[in-house]
């Protein structure tokens, strides 16, 4: 009676568990080499059309990077790859030293600390401004905790703060669908802030904004850089000039030039393909 049990114990010691029972401990973001985002040799094609072709991009911790490029240069596709929406055909993408972006789903990447603002402002139109921010707030986003969650005072304060930053304190009760285009852009940036991301991907943040709003956005983004890394994709050259420290030019899915705004503007290749000269 004891014998088989013993044999079994030897075969399967008590301190051992099945592999699938070992909880996966998500790696912590490690930016000890100062680089927060590595994209190396990324290629992706849609039905033969190469949207991204051997792209290499490195973004430093705390950096504010602007990416420009003509239509179809692959800017949005690049963001899709970073956020896990599109899987590349080849290449590697790492978030810090430890997190492999290619093996993760969109929510996992978002949880790891990458926030994204879409090209077209995407807010939850049926919800109020306040609820939009609440949904975006960094918290336990699994199903059951979400079902039973209630707002703490601290979290409320955080939402109020963000409302103030994006200038929507007055209209926190109105439905997001009733906001103006510019306000929606701001709300989406606010949602991004609520996520407390380490890396922000911002796709055309000032489209449809007035000059004043644009200035305010520029101010906000510059103030955020430092603590966070930000990648801004933008068409508006004035805006890019007002915030950019380092600019990357994408063309036909790969990098054409990289440097500060003046270098870029004087680069003959860039002038040819992008500035139309």
């Amino acid at each position: 009676m004891i014998q088989p049990l013993k044999a079994f114990r030897e075969f399967w010691p008590r301190d051992r568990v099945f592999d699938f029972l070992i909880p996966e401990i998500p790696p912590v973001l490690d930016t000890s080499h100062r680089v927060i985002l590595y994209l190396e040799g990324i290629s992706v094609s849609f039905d033969g059309f190469k949207a991204i072709n051997d792209l290499n991009l490195y973004v430093d911790k705390g950096e504010l990077r602007c990416i420009i490029g003509p239509n179809g240069a692959g800017k949005t596709t690049m963001m899709d790859i970073i956020t896990g929406k599109t899987k590349p055909d080849s290449g590697i993408a790492w978030f810090g030293q430890t997190i492999n972006l290619l093996s993760r789903t969109e929510p996992e990447i978002a949880e790891a600390g990458i926030g994204r603002k879409f090209q077209k402002p995407t807010v939850f139109e049926a919800h109020t401004v306040f609820e939009n921010l609440e949904l975006a707030m960094a918290s336990d986003k699994r199903v059951v905790p979400t079902l039973f969650s209630s707002l703490t005072g601290e979290q409320k304060d955080m939402i109020d703060q963000t409302l103030e930053i994006v200038g929507l304190s007055e209209s926190f009760k109105s439905r997001a669908g009733s906001l103006s285009h510019g306000q929606k852009q701001w709300l989406e940036i606010g949602m991004l802030l609520m996520q407390k991301p380490v890396l922000l991907l911002v796709d055309e943040p000032v489209a449809g904004m007035t000059r004043q709003e644009m200035e305010k956005t520029a101010e906000l983004l510059t103030s955020l850089a430092g603590n966070r890394s930000i990648i801004v994709v933008e068409h508006d050259m004035d805006f890019v000039r007002s915030i950019a420290r380092k600019v990357t030019v994408l063309h036909q899915g790969s990098i054409l030039a990289e440097g500060n705004m003046d270098d870029i503007q004087n680069n003959p290749k860039v002038r040819e393909v992008y500035l139309g000269e």
Binding site: A126, L135, S149
Partner: peptide, 27 residues
């Protein structure tokens, strides 16, 4: 509940919810 607001958010903009870190499929 907040989950209810997530539901309606999924209805209106599924991708956005995903990028906020919710596991849309599980919900």
């Amino acid at each position: 509940s907040k989950l209810g607001r997530v539901l309606a958010a999924i209805r209106d903009a599924e991708d956005r919810v995903r990028f906020l870190g919710y596991n849309v499929e599980t919900v």
